[in-house]
Write a protein that binds this DNA or RNA. Structure first.
Lengths: 362, 362
DNA sequence: TTCTAGATTTGGATCAATCCAAAAACATCT
DNA sequence: AGATGTTTTTGGATTGATCCAAATCTAGAA
């Protein structure tokens, strides 16, 4: 009669139990409950337990929106990719998700479809939602000023896979140049001298780095032959480009592809021409997606570890959010060459016995 | 001196221009600015223009968090899938993204990895963020009570691809039973009589519906032969199961697979056994992922349109959010059979007389 | 000119948390 | 017991928008 500890049913009606309600029920103040929720060490153990019991009893649900309004962060990260339908991004997003989840963060995901306009809209929307930071895989044609704009917004941004402008900025990716270099090394070891490259025609860093790796590697091995074809980085483009390529004279004996999709297309194209991938022409892809292990023949590929890139990018973003003024970081993972069957096996290639069609002119 | 219209630089420092600031600058009240932002027809045109000018001039950024606190919705949707790395989900998420984007919504994406515990954590987190609704692809083993729990939370939830419990509930998917039925019909048309099925061993609706479609179709055609193998729905499982299957006597002449990944595995397995997919054994997949068109041989597949499912699911969720009490809806898209080469071509199977040179098949 | 219906506009309360300075409770040492 | 120092706890102010009832401003009619 003096104090009703639990108004039986009137509480869970409207679904909104507030800090105030808990405080009343536990006989403490709003502020104390807030401290308990945030796991502050200021609260005495006995009080903490009382409050936690009340929280459980009343079925309280933390309101992150209200907290964000007064506080300084939303525990929310914006993620903008340009092709979520691509399996590579699926894996990357899974990595991001895992890393964020550990810290209680949630991510807004948006798909720019490589359109700078869509990308811009998404970024503005995320800003309105007061995300703590952004993971951005910049759409092709993103203006160089975008990074400054984000800085003006004081929105921490980690660029992923591609970057616009020059460092310093936060960046997480794979060392694409090195990956292609490794692929060339491997082919040279196997005895190849005429190594072609099927690349993307787009102008972003991820494409350029691969070209660079390719030409550096050729120079390093004193190879005169060079053949660089550009197209979409799709299976279909791989199929079409390889046909053109195989009609060249002299014909390359190996081809490195921008990604695995192109490589699959190239292998299919070879088959359609009556040529055997790995025998008549070695093929190397990039990314090492799951299908690479099970294609026919199994594809040798430069593994770029999308899941790990996602994890690293997310962790870097969290670091930057915690320390916005800190030194910018570039996390560039080393790829590794996953050797399978699409380059033939060593015995075939390294011991060409007689017909060493010694490299001629390009 | 009486009124300073624009304090030149002191405003954009802290980055937070509020409704109050705009109101002062435009000479109106907070409330009016709010009405303008929400495109209320109550505001006179002249006032609206004045306010919009002030908004632009001061570089105001709408604070959706603050709005959500007082208002009733967050323009936010939670999306929980169980395998984001799967290309099917990539496409589906792209569809969701497109539909939400049109209405100004943003989505939180989470990956349950088919773990009910992870799923539960994510749902709680999303509740704390006060999402307006949930798109849920239930993890395997999700307790039947989950849907009630979400209802208790008064959180609108659309189940996608799989469902737990029985209608009425909101649900968006493909008619898997019908898809398998169509596949059987096609094979029977081609003259097949021994048709096997490679399915998943999991106990969710999506798997059961396919079994059901398979046995109904067999009954419909009075086929006595039946062979149903269960495993993971992965490429590797397809590869392993087909080998077992082809050692059976009598051997099936055709196999329908739970999804395309299994079908790719099955085709690879056939090749490894020295059998030709489409000649020695017809293969049909489900989903019609992009790779299906370019595999070797090109895969006949039951197209389930993940992008469209994503769009429909998102739109249904938005409808339910707008009208929480409305009648529950089941949006079940009709799949269609995408015929390619993995069942042989018509000339071999149906009309051995004339070599119809028409591109793929009729 | 006054009245009134209709169209605009407004201030105060509210949403549910956090921040912060100051108060209260408790322990320790003369 | 009193002075001092440490933990704990607290109320009031604050965050930035929306809701709502009431106030103000039209324009047309009496």
């Amino acid at each position: 009669m003096t104090q009703d500890t639990v108004p039986p049913s009137s509480r869970r009606d409207s679904g909104s139990v507030t800090l105030q309600d808990i405080a009343a029920h536990a006989g403490v103040s709003r502020s104390t409950v807030s401290l308990v929720l945030r796991e502050s060490p200021l609260v005495a153990d006995r009080t903490r337990l009382k409050v936690q019991a009340a929280i459980k009893e009343l079925g309280y649900v933390y309101n992150r929106g209200a907290a964000a309004l007064r506080g300084s962060h939303t525990a929310t990260l914006g993620v903008v990719v340009y092709d979520i339908a691509n399996p590579f991004f699926g894996a990357m997003v899974a990595g991001i998700d895992a890393a964020l989840n550990r810290e209680g963060y949630v991510s807004f995901l948006a798909n720019s479809e490589d359109s700078p306009e869509r990308q811009q809209r998404f970024l503005e929307r995320m800003r309105e939602h007061r995300v703590d930071g952004i993971l951005l895989c910049p759409a092709e044609g993103t203006p160089a000023s975008l990074i400054e704009t984000l800085a003006d917004w004081s929105l921490p941004c980690v660029q992923v896979l591609r970057h616009i402008g020059e460092p310093p900025f936060d960046y997480a990716s794979s060392d694409f140049a090195r990956g292609v270099h490794q692929a060339v090394d491997h082919l040279v070891d196997l005895g190849h001298r005429r190594i072609a490259f099927l690349g993307g025609h787009a102008q972003h860093s991820a494409t350029q780095e691969r070209w660079q790796g390719y030409s550096e590697a050729l120079a390093h091995h004193d190879l005169a032959y060079q053949s660089l074809m550009r197209g979409q980085v799709t299976r279909r483009a791989g199929l079409e480009l390889i046909e053109t390529l195989m009609r060249e004279t002299p014909r390359p004996t190996a081809v490195i592809c921008h990604n695995d999709l192109m490589a699959f297309g190239a292998m299919l194209g070879l088959k359609r021409m009556g040529l055997a991938p790995g025998v008549d022409c070695a093929v190397i892809g990039t990314d090492d997606v799951e299908e690479a292990a099970l294609s026919d023949p199994a594809l040798t590929s430069v593994a770029t570890h999308p899941y790990a890139i996602g994890e690293e990018a997310a962790r870097l973003a969290l670091r930057r959010i915690a320390d916005p003024g800190g030194a910018r970081e570039q996390v560039v993972l080393a790829p590794h060459l996953q050797v399978r069957e699409s380059c033939g096996n060593a015995s075939q290639a390294t011991a060409p016995a007689s017909p060493t069609t010694s490299d001629s002119i390009a």
